[in-house]
């Protein structure tokens, strides 16, 4: 963990200091990678998207208010980068067969296996959603933004955001119910 306050790092990075920006990357790469991983479900595409997001953040750092926390801004950039990659129809890999290990693993091998199965199923369902639904699920459930903040981040109306979010949840609920039926048959 860096001993330099984040605000100082942001100020230095905003004036073009690459060493400060490298420190910001080290501090936030885990969070940014996870946003992209929830989006693509595979390590390769998630790493590429995380790199794109940091490069874009560097190019637009002069627009960032250095008095605000960096993480939410970087995560929002990552969501937009992921959306752009998908909208550009760039070929992406399929969901990883083996999930990377969790950052904070839970104790107990049996509990771990059950949790990993549920986690994998949920990740697959998220990745299977249409891109715009994925974006609102990410911003609402993982980044805990309000409807207004999501609308601002995605440059869409609040009513559109609400509509997509509620439909995404409904779709997830239906798929999870279907899955339960399949496993119980």
């Amino acid at each position: 963990m860096s001993s330099v306050p984040e605000g100082d790092l942001a100020r230095r990075a905003a004036s073009g200091d690459q060493e400060a920006f490298a420190e910001i990357v080290r501090l936030h790469q885990q969070a940014v990678f996870n946003v992209a991983y929830r989006y693509f479900g595979n390590v390769k595409d998630a790493e590429d998207a995380a790199q794109d997001a940091f490069v874009r953040a560097y190019q637009f750092f002069d627009r960032f208010d250095v008095n605000r926390p960096l993480a939410p801004w970087l995560k929002r950039i990552t969501v937009n980068v992921c959306l752009n990659i998908i909208n550009a129809d760039k070929p992406t890999a399929s969901l990883d067969d083996d999930l990377p290990p969790p950052k904070d693993p839970k104790p107990g091998p049996e509990a771990q296996t059950a949790t990993r199965q549920r986690e994998r199923r949920m990740r697959a369902e998220i990745v299977g959603l249409p891109p715009r639904y994925r974006a609102v699920i990410e911003l609402r459930h993982f980044q805990e933004l309000s409807y207004t903040e999501i609308a601002s981040a995605l440059k869409r109306s609040q009513s559109d955001i609400k509509s997509d979010l509620f439909r995404a949840r409904k779709l997830l609920a239906e798929r999870l119910i279907d899955l339960k039926h399949e496993t119980s048959d």
Partner: peptide
């Protein structure tokens, strides 16, 4: 269910 999706470790 969305809450159980944890952060994964970067390799």
């Amino acid at each position: 269910e969305l809450q159980i999706v944890p952060e994964v470790a970067l390799k």
